[in-house]
Amino acid sequence: MTAIGSAARFAPVRLLGRIHPSYAALLVLLIAIAFLTPNFLSPLGVMAFLRRGASLAIVSVGQLFVLSMGGFDLSVGSLITLAVMGSALMINNDPALTWHAIALVYLMGIGSGLFLGLVVSYLKVPSIIASLGALLSIKGVALAWSGGSPQGYLPDNFRQFGRVTYHDVPIIQVLPMSVVVLAVFVAICAWLFHGTTFGRLALIVGDNPRAADLAGVRVRLVRIVGFLVSAVSAVTAGILLGGFAGPAQDVGDGFELQAIAANVLGGTQLLGGRGSVAGVVAGSLTLTALFTVLNLIGLPKPLRDAVQGGILIAAVAYSVRRQGWEK
């Protein structure tokens, strides 16, 4: 009786409650950035922000494919490093070799993703262990290859993906190439995840692999494709980062955890069964915005990691609460 009335009256409030708080957090952070950097709200500022966040967004969306089917891919950070270091070593400042090198690092990524997928689905190694092992091995390969210090140079035609910005674009004025890469990659992933049978199966496999198997779903194939997408996302992010920051042995460090954090912020359920590309993109931009704010107020990088750890816990704790309410 009265319950119905009050429910109707507070419907907008309840609707607000249903919005994931990471969007609210993103808004607050963006406002904070706008106050801290005067020209942020210009097309230039927004595009610079997107360019900074592009690689994390790409890896996070890749990670979504593995997380939604109940796994983890912790190898992406070292795969990014391998992509950057490997390209630098293979190209060695000879622009003619750029495209060969890009093809080769994608092949390496596909090989690594395929290997992880096979190990997880056929040898039944929990993906958290398998991908941690891959993290160690891939980092070892990158270090052994480069002899332990950054070597080689990346020519401009490689670095353009991370660095070049088109000017005089109508309406938005400027358009960094990395934002184009981001948009294309996210569009492809959104199609894969929301517009194909594969996407639906990924969620079902994350929910109950046994039931999926007994309904004729090729669970192993689904898992392998998931790891492939994640690996390809890491290589793509690596190519952007190589252009953005240049070769270094620690370019990829910590990306695996940031990608998981971005997913958690974006409403992906750990251990599978729920997630969306739009949510993850929002989650990764939230994280980028947060890092930007922490940077602007002068927090050293290690402390930014610490803040990230706290956020990870808080976000999962919140989503647990939220599920409790939904019951």
């Binding site: 194909t196 049978t197 639906r200 079902i204 999926a212 309904a215 779903v217 090729r218 194939l221 494709v225």
Partner: peptide, 17 residues
Amino acid sequence: ENALLAMRGIAAIFSRP
């Protein structure tokens, strides 16, 4: 989704659901 599962299983993996 549960009712569609067996159909999903035999469908081409990158087909429209």
